[in-house]
Design a protein around this nucleic acid. Sequence first.
DNA 1: AGCCTGATATATCGGCCCGATACATTCGCG
DNA 2: CGCGAATGTATCGGGCCGATATATCAGGCT
Lengths: 182, 182
Amino acid sequence: MELSPTAYVILGMVSREPRSGYEIKALVDGSTRFFWAASYGQIYPELKRLAEAGLVKGLDAPRGERKRTVYAITASGKEALRDWLRQPPSTYETRDEGLLKLFFAGVLPPTEAAAILRSMREHRLGVVERLRAIEPTALEKEDPFPLIVLRGGIEFNEWYAGWCERMEGQLPEPTATKKRSS
Amino acid sequence: MELSPTAYVILGMVSREPRSGYEIKALVDGSTRFFWAASYGQIYPELKRLAEAGLVKGLDAPRGERKRTVYAITASGKEALRDWLRQPPSTYETRDEGLLKLFFAGVLPPTEAAAILRSMREHRLGVVERLRAIEPTALEKEDPFPLIVLRGGIEFNEWYAGWCERMEGQLPEPTATKKRSS
DNA sequence: AGCCTGATATATCGGCCCGATACATTCGCG
DNA sequence: CGCGAATGTATCGGGCCGATATATCAGGCT
């Protein structure tokens, strides 16, 4: 049976303790979101599929009057997760609108490319802040891997911000005196 | 009118000279693919939409007996492209299955995490090679921005490969008893 | 000449996935 | 006590990928 990486995100998130779909979404938003996001529109149907396939098991766990189902990983679910972890990763994609705009910046007057780089840099610094805010939480756990990944994210975004700064500094000079409306 | 970033990729690709859908796809695959991909399933319908909106104009340009349509940007198309370039970028997403596996590597025996990092490093080194192969082409053009972006991609992938190497070297030792962090 | 492969060119389809939204309940706080 | 925020489940439109289908054309090989 072929599962999407998002299915394995879910499997991983319930691998330590049972979780509701809502909790899974919150966990993803607070951790893997930066390199693998997931929406409710995927999570709930995927949980049902995983339950049908016997990789997780749904358990009624109401809080008060509100219905609530938590999903626990099964033995074959754990096996599927480990098998997947042992395969070499294959999906790597990025959608970076900033780089896209920079790529086409030649159609703008020369000075305006700098604004794109500044936006990109600001964005990266913002991400660094958000990641740093998460760090204390990751430090508490005994599993070291989320922390390694998180710190990698911080380093990457700092590197990226630095690159933007450097590129802004060595942008091609606007050639000679060319007056333009301001 | 609201256009997707992919629509602007197309607009950008035809902004210097008219191109067929096939050519646009080839251009994207040889340049923006690494930070903004596009498939035929998007390009052809999007070209029709852009033509209806008057941002590009379709021109018959058969080669021999085979039908062929090239699309040229219009004045309002160029305006739309410039307007978009002046807005701050908003879409930034990444899907990195390697980081995802590393994130969950705690469910594997300790030594196996190194294999994930090695796969990731190999992948990045492969991308570096592919980008370097493109570099000569980008050097020929007079537009400096594609080259800036390309070199940024090379630097990034080298940085990433180095990070994988460093992390592999400081992976938690498999030996001894479990320790509590604090 | 005929054949095969690969490039050119357009189009479609299943399925993944996002963002937004809807709705109901329950908790925390002033 | 009341109200907004958080919890919990679910759905829908649309973007987008990857694979595939069809057809023509150019080149090299036999």
